[in-house]
Computed example of a mutant assay.
Amino acid sequence: MEYNENTYQEAIKYLKDRGVTAYELHKYSGKSESGFRKLLNGTVDSPRRLTKEIVINFYDELLKKEENLSKVNSKYTKGLEKFSPHQIGTYISENIELFNMEEIFVTIFKRSVLQEANKIVEKSIEKEKQKKTKN
C-alpha cells in the first residue's frame, strides 16, 4: 500500500486497537523490536518513512486476512447475532462433537465464533451507552 500520513495514522490506530505487539512487527519486518515498542508506546513522534511503510504494509496484510476470514465467518455464523454469547457457548459445549468433526469447525470455534460473539457484546454495550446518553 502506498504511504500517506492518513493511512499511517489509521494503520497505527488499528494495530494498537488490535493489540499488535512490537514483536509481531519485528517478526514481520526484521527491524528492531525495541523501535516498534517505542513507536507503539508513543515514545517516537516522527518515525522514518520506511517504518511507516512497514506499519502500513502490515496493516494492509491484516485487513486482507480479516476480509478473507469474514467471508468464511459469514457462511458459518449467519444468524449468530440472534443469540447471546452465553447461548453460543452453551450450544458449542453441548455439541462439541459437531465442532470436532472437521478442522474448519475447530478454527471457527477458536477464532470466528468468539469474534462474532464479541461483536455482539460490543454492539449491546454501545446501545446501552447510547440509551444512557439520551436519558
Rank of each mutant, 00 (worst) to 15 (best):
S32Q: 07
H26P: 05
L40H: 00
G35I: 08
P47H: 09
V44P: 02
R49W: 03
K52I: 08
S29T: 09
K52Y: 05
I12E: 12
Y14N: 12
V55M: 02
K27P: 04
Y23Q: 14
G30A: 14
G30N: 12
L50F: 02
K38N: 14
E33L: 04
A22N: 13
L15P: 02
I54F: 01
R48L: 06
E33N: 09
Y23T: 13
V20Q: 07
L50C: 10
V20K: 07
E10L: 13
G42K: 04
Y23K: 14
G35A: 13
S34D: 13
I12W: 03
Y23C: 11
G19E: 02
G35V: 11
E10Y: 11
S46R: 03
V55H: 00
I54S: 05
L40N: 00
E10S: 12
E24Q: 14
R49Y: 05
I54R: 02
F36R: 09
L15M: 07
K16W: 02
Q9S: 13
G19L: 05
A11L: 04
S32Y: 02
L40G: 01
D17G: 09
K38A: 12
L25A: 11
L39S: 06
A11R: 10
V44T: 03
E53G: 01
P47V: 05
K38T: 01
L39M: 06
E53T: 00
Y28E: 11
Q9L: 14
L50A: 11
G35L: 09
S34C: 06
T21P: 13
K13D: 11
G42N: 05
L15W: 10
Y14R: 08
G30T: 03
F36Q: 10
D17K: 11
D17L: 12
E33H: 11
L25H: 02
R18W: 13
R49Q: 06
Q9T: 09
L50N: 12
E33V: 03
K13S: 15
E53P: 03
